[in-house]
Design a protein around this nucleic acid. Structure first.
Lengths: 203, 203, 203, 203
DNA sequence: CATGAATGAGAATTCATTCAT
DNA sequence: TATGAATGAATTCTCATTCAT
């Protein structure tokens, strides 16, 4: 029994970590953080509960990481959507649409990540994530103002408002629990228009 | 021949319900619904846990009432703010400002009421509350569209977006935990502008 | 304020006691001892909970008395039914039938009194009551044996068996939850025949 | 590579369920279902309360299983006792005697299983159990009637009466709390005779 | 005397975390 | 190293009984 980790073990380790994260993500997207108990995560990941504590000091830490990873991926996609040389309004529209369409495919995950609290520690992380989302929009706004494409406005406030607007439209009372494809597209369009007008980016 | 209730008892009685509601409100505003366990509420209210069940059949019912009472009061004020014969954009601005200013005074309560879910039963109530808020704005939008003051748009979606926008701006990452008065007023103005532009109500 | 009880007060007192017993009986017959909480009894009796403790030192004592009173009344009726100069077998049949028919009219009361336990103290009383029922039958058996109408047998055991037999037939799995009049009469007849044969009282 | 369960763990595991059942059985037989609170069961079983919920979803389920297991075992033995080619009356006598003798060894358990209800769910199970007992006797009766050994009678009613008869004789007021061996045998004989006569199975 | 508000000791159940194997 | 059985603190809710008014 060697004390050096073999490459195989390394892989197993990385594997495990990944499996835990994946399992958590799956459970959260299906039933919110509430349903992602440690034992459930362990079962889905195909490992033991004790194992989870080898990779994450606590449930909160696990949640924070799952949240962060999911959001980082989303941010990456959003940032790509936000890139381009179109006028700021147009880019904003594209970016919002991108986010909303993605969220409509896995509403519960978006919900849990955006709206569902768990414990204070995770909550703090959630705020950071929302900030990150906002920053994507803030960047568009700042550039748009510089180029004179958008009227003067507080980019932080506007960015937050944008995030809030589509979040609410997604997880709020008019949310898409029972919407068909056509309705969904109409909702996407409505949110997009709202946001473009909101920042003064309409033609 | 039944002994009459002493005035003291009467007061105590009315007091109790009020005290329970107040205690819950206090705890929720400080730490969210999470911190408002029955025993904590009892302690803060200065009564026993059993007493709470004399007034509320379950914790969920208590929460729903606290939520509902706070929201109804808010809705009332908002509705008044929304009244008037100014153009729709202006009325919308007034209403948003009204809500935001009030929320900035007790941000955590707003947070819990607007953003924090607890259990399914309370969650349902929360959704209803958000819908109520939205309806205040929807009414303005519908009238504005009829009068030709606002461009065509889905009033449900726009209303939800408005609620989401200022909610996020209030309880989100740019939220007002440590803002001074000046900053607050600037935030209010930014949110207001955002919302007015968003519905096409800018001059 | 006089310290002598006025006749009126005496009556009120007796009244109260009666009302408490009646209320308890009503509640027990509707939902078993489980549903007869002190506060429910107080409500039905139209008095306060504290009042109940003026008449009964504890809930158990109240239950014991209710049980005893109901059973005594039943015993009285049974004893009358058992009287007469017919052969023992016939008298036994009459008595059993009498009890069963009465029980079929208010099955829950009989059930609660016969089968439902509450706490040890009440349980003891219940045993005493069953003994009383048994004694009615025992008397018939003893006389029947003396007259040579019935074969020799242990009258205590037979009496207990009789009580058990019809009790089970009443509250057991073939019990009368949803029986119509015809079925009920057939059940009555079956139980009667069983008991008469059991003691050797058949012609 | 998962660590194999040590034989010790295996044993402990199997042990646990058994220990819980045993502890419950013990407590029930000593003080009825009332005394078998989860914490008491845990203490007697030498485990924690949480552990119980690893094996049984709820207290009611635990009770139902304890009840069912005990009854199934009893039924098995009774069914064997009921087998044979003797006349129905004789077989009935054997069966009754078998049950009664066994019950006399652990009277309180029989009491709890047969007479004591707890909550609706368990009660339902108890009724089913009594029905099962009855069915053993019903089978004898039906066969006896077919062969002309027994007079016509409602086999359901008679079976219920038989169960009730010996139950009462066992757990009722003449019950065997303080009987010596000789008395017990006399009781057994009395019950047997009663039942045989009751169904018309006497020679 | 009469009230019924108030108490608070329990009872069932859940689940993050630990640790013997 | 990996397991998952085991723990037990925490939480909600109930109801007999008391006692200030």
């Amino acid at each position: 029994m060697s004390y050096r980790r073999s490459p195989l073990m390394e892989e197993r380790l990385a594997n495990n970590r990944e499996r835990i994260l994946l399992a958590t993500r799956k459970l959260v997207s299906e039933g919110g953080f509430r349903e992602a108990q440690i034992s459930a995560v362990a079962t889905v990941a195909g490992i033991s509960t004790g194992m989870i504590y080898r990779y994450f000091p606590s449930k909160a830490d696990l949640f924070v990481e799952v949240l962060g990873a999911a959001v980082d991926q989303e941010i990456k996609i959003l940032t790509q959507a936000a890139a381009g040389h179109e006028p700021a309004g147009e880019r904003l529209g594209k970016t919002v649409t991108c986010f909303v369409r993605r969220a409509l495919k896995g509403p519960n995950l978006a919900y849990a990540f955006i709206a569902e609290p768990v414990d204070p520690e995770v909550d703090t992380a959630r705020l950071r994530c929302r900030k990150k989302f906002g920053d994507v929009f803030k960047a568009i706004l700042v550039e748009g103002m510089q180029k004179g494409e958008l009227p003067e406005q507080d980019p932080d406030a506007s960015a937050a408002c944008i995030v809030g607007a589509f979040t609410e439209a997604l997880v709020g009372p008019i949310g898409p629990t029972t919407r068909n494809t056509q309705d969904k597209e109409r909702l996407v369009a409505s949110i997009q228009s709202f946001c473009i007008r909101a920042v003064g980016g309409a033609p």
